[in-house]
């Protein structure tokens, strides 16, 4: 039973990270209907920035804040410089652009920081907070993810900018006709996504260690979580992330072993999608002829 609880909690912690990445994906998907395959590498690059700052002697939370801000501008720039040029291209062209971004970021990071694995600090104390089953880092990760979700909720619900972004996501033409600068809203979405991704990266790095390929598996789970929760629904993305995290951990521990856990977890997710094609919390839509 104790082992089981431990598996559930560490699954929740992993799930919180998938949830954050899924949230980042939802930010971009909502307004542009693109799934950004480079989201994981953007987060990885941000985490290296944080590592460099911490190594230079900047205190952890200061480096954290600076990384979140820097990532925002990186995301914004990527949208303005590259993505908007192909905004109207067919989906597959965009997929290729995102893959290009992915390999470029991965390769440049490896070149600057080398491919040797690095230790990334956790801001949370080493001794467990809530009994022996939950490490402080795991509890902290869940807490941070919930705070991010709450902040996003407040931003979208109560600020004028948040409303403008929601309007843009729903109906770009109408938004333009209300004087909203739609192009900037999309760039802002990318900025926010990059910031959220950066947080996910900094939370996962103490667990998986820092290396240029650290996000590849996590991105896949993030995409799965977002699709499972309903790709246009931030709340669903978070729930999806938690479900995927726990599912993956329990599968690995009790059913198929670590060798095949990725495979089985993915098969299960696809199974869910076959029966519920818009995800658990996604809006169903009607095709018009």
């Amino acid at each position: 039973m104790e082992a089981f609880l431990h598996q559930v909690f560490s699954g929740l912690a992993n799930g919180a990270i998938y949830a954050s990445l899924a949230l980042a994906l939802v930010m971009i998907y909502q307004s542009t209907h693109h799934i950004n395959f480079a989201q994981g590498e953007m987060a990885m690059f941000s985490t290296y920035l944080a590592w460099a700052m911490i190594n230079a002697g900047i205190p952890y939370w200061m480096a954290f804040a600076l990384t979140v801000i820097a990532s925002f501008f990186i995301g914004l720039t990527i949208e303005r410089v590259i993505v908007r040029r192909v905004a109207d291209a067919p989906v597959l062209t965009l997929v290729v652009v995102f893959i290009a971004l992915l390999v470029i970021l991965n390769s440049i990071t490896g070149w600057i920081f080398t491919y040797t694995i690095k230790v990334f600090p956790s801001p949370f104390p080493e001794q467990p907070l809530f009994g022996p089953y939950v490490s402080s880092h795991e509890a902290g990760v869940v807490g941070v993810s919930l705070i991010v979700l709450l902040l996003l909720f407040l931003f979208f619900r109560f600020t004028s900018l948040g409303l403008a972004m929601r309007a843009t996501a729903e109906n770009a033409v109408s938004s333009r006709l209300s004087g909203i600068r739609v192009g900037w809203m999309l760039a802002l979405g990318w900025g926010l996504a990059a910031s959220i991704g950066a947080i996910a990266g900094m939370m996962v790095a103490p667990i998986v260690y820092l290396d240029p390929n650290m996000m590849s598996g996590i991105l896949l789970y993030g995409i799965a979580a977002a699709l499972m929760g309903g790709i246009d629904n931030p709340f669903g993305a978070v729930v999806g992330g938690l479900i995927v995290g726990v599912l993956e951990n329990l599968m690995g521990a009790y059913v198929v072993g670590t060798e095949l856990k990725l495979t089985v977890a993915l098969m299960l997710i696809i199974g869910v999608l076959i029966f519920k094609p818009t995800g658990l919390f996604g809006r169903s839509f009607v095709t018009r002829v």
Partner: peptide, 12 residues
């Protein structure tokens, strides 16, 4: 040093 970055630029 960074062959995949070059590959990515080719793609773009």
């Amino acid at each position: 040093a960074a062959p995949w970055a070059v590959y990515g630029l080719f793609l773009l």
